[in-house]
């Protein structure tokens, strides 16, 4: 039978509110129900004005990252039964609030754009596919799974005090292209992340690794970028293939 759980949800409408508040909703929960389904219940039955993003409801579109009981997670992949009877939901940090749980992700995407997040191949685009061995492709496992949800960015302490810090997702994306055997822009890529707002700003707190819903492990990706930069300083002939 349905068990009722209490949801405390962050609310803020800049048109009418001076200050944020938490609204409390009682939601009947059935086995297998997710936090996103609970939010749907609220919007459909209790308070239609509740604002949050949602789409695929299966953890692949990246719309619904939010702070749920102390941790950034995708609402759609979070089972209510795994949480306590009282559930507190906040929007992602380090980004301006548009309304309730909807934040302005512009800075997140601007930083992604800054690292040239696209393949820069050495050879022209002609003919059939480029050859990439299974081992070369295996480098990209997990890194290419990033869904741009922003959970890592919101969880990162450095993003909290350095507005210009590129953040875990953009840096991991740099490593995704650096480690792609088809990409031929190593120096350019590393130069883009090698200043005081780039990889060396990372404090290796592992927050991004902890929250990433897709096991991208930005922490390890950033560590690799640091290693690549330092190795090149020590040995100018160094190639990424050596790692």
């Amino acid at each position: 039978m349905a068990e009722t759980k209490t949801f405390k949800v962050f609310r803020f409408n800049p048109q009418t509110d001076k200050k944020h508040r938490f609204d409390t909703f009682k939601v009947p929960c059935r086995p297998g129900m997710t936090v996103l389904q609970a939010l749907n219940y609220v919007q459909e039955n209790l308070d239609g004005s509740l604002a949050y993003r949602s789409s695929c409801r299966e953890g692949i579109c990246g719309s619904c990252a939010m702070h749920i009981n102390g941790k950034y997670r995708l609402a759609c992949e979070t089972q209510i039964s795994h949480l306590s009877a009282s559930i507190t939901i906040r929007p992602m940090a380090h980004m301006d609030i548009i309304r309730d749980l909807v934040v302005d992700m512009t800075p997140f995407f601007e930083k992604l754009k800054a690292i040239k997040p696209y393949l820069i191949p050495g050879d022209p685009d002609e003919g059939a596919e480029r050859i990439q061995t299974q081992d070369e492709r295996a480098y990209l496992d997990y890194i290419v799974d990033c869904i741009l949800c922003g959970a890592c960015y919101a969880s990162c302490a450095v993003n909290g005090y350095d507005d210009e810090y590129l953040g875990p997702a953009a840096l991991a994306k740099t490593n995704r292209f650096l480690m792609d055997s088809r990409d031929k822009a190593d120096e350019q890529r590393l130069a883009l992340v090698c200043d005081e707002h780039g990889v060396f700003r990372c404090h290796t707190l592992f927050n991004c690794q902890t929250v990433c819903p897709k096991n991208v492990d930005p922490t390890a990706n950033i560590a690799n970028l640091k290693r690549q930069i330092i190795a090149r300083q020590l040995n100018p002939g160094f190639s990424k293939k050596g790692i």
Binding site: L119, P121, D125, I131, Q134, E136, R137, F177, D180
Partner: peptide, 13 residues
């Protein structure tokens, strides 16, 4: 060519 990370055959296709 645009970078899609397809899975690969043993001969890299």
């Amino acid at each position: 060519h645009w970078g899609a990370p397809f899975s690969r055959t043993e001969d890299g296709r």
